[in-house]
């Protein structure tokens, strides 16, 4: 197995759960269910990427809505998560036509957070997501609308009429990224961060591994 793949497989696990939900209304804080992860007791962080992109509930399309789930196994992973979570908050606050651009910038920043040698595959996937999202924004750019923000957080608007279509495509870009990350990081069970503490079977007590 290549070192890159193995690198991701270890202390840098990124587990992605793709929750297929066909609904027009999604609760703001969707709980993420990943069967195999549960036993492993992996804690979840859910940057609501789709919410970041799609805006308020009423505009949600009836398509699959992917969600992120990152494993807090170490500081680097949590750094990436922090970036994405922060971006979610930030992007949500913007008007919907700016959100795809905001997402592109967020992934770029997350990629910089993945600077360690073993995060190469993750970095490359995050960078590609950022590039693809930027291209998507360019293709649908609204030249008459102002660019907002500054520095690394400069956002362009897409045409209002294109917002939903852009959102759909953005989702598929992100899904693809997720699949890439999932594939390169291997199966969930290989994650280094197994559960140290568990509720003892048939008891209300907790017991500990070494």
């Amino acid at each position: 197995m290549s070192k890159i793949n193995q690198g991701l497989q270890k202390i840098a696990p990124v587990t992605i759960a793709v929750a297929m939900t066909v609904t027009s209304v999604l609760p703001a804080q969707a709980a993420v269910q990943v069967a195999s992860d549960r036993e492993m007791g992996i804690t979840t962080a859910v940057p609501e990427t789709y919410a970041m992109l799609l805006g308020p509930r009423s505009t949600l399309p009836t398509v699959m809505i992917p969600e992120f789930e990152l494993v807090f196994s170490d500081s680097a992973t949590s750094q990436i998560t922090r970036v994405l979570k922060g971006a979610t908050r930030e992007c949500r606050a913007l008007a919907s036509e700016y959100r795809a651009s905001c997402a592109a910038a967020a992934f770029k920043r997350a990629a910089s957070a993945a600077s360690r040698p073993d995060y190469r595959a993750a970095r490359s996937a995050l960078n590609k997501a950022s590039r693809d999202l930027s291209r998507l924004v360019s293709r649908n750019a609204d030249r008459s609308a102002p660019t907002i923000g500054s520095g690394r957080k400069k956002y362009k608007a897409v045409k209002k009429a294109a917002v939903r279509a852009v959102a759909k495509q953005a989702i598929s870009i992100i899904s693809e990224t997720q699949t890439k990350l999932l594939r390169s990081s291997g199966s969930v069970k290989r994650k280094t961060h197994y559960k140290r503490i568990a509720q003892a079977v048939g008891s209300t007590k907790v017991i500990f591994r070494s």
Partner: peptide, 13 residues
């Protein structure tokens, strides 16, 4: 250290 706790827990059960 952990085993001593684990055992204490099970004894208590």
């Amino acid at each position: 250290p952990e085993a001593m706790f684990n055992l204490a827990a099970l004894i208590d059960d």
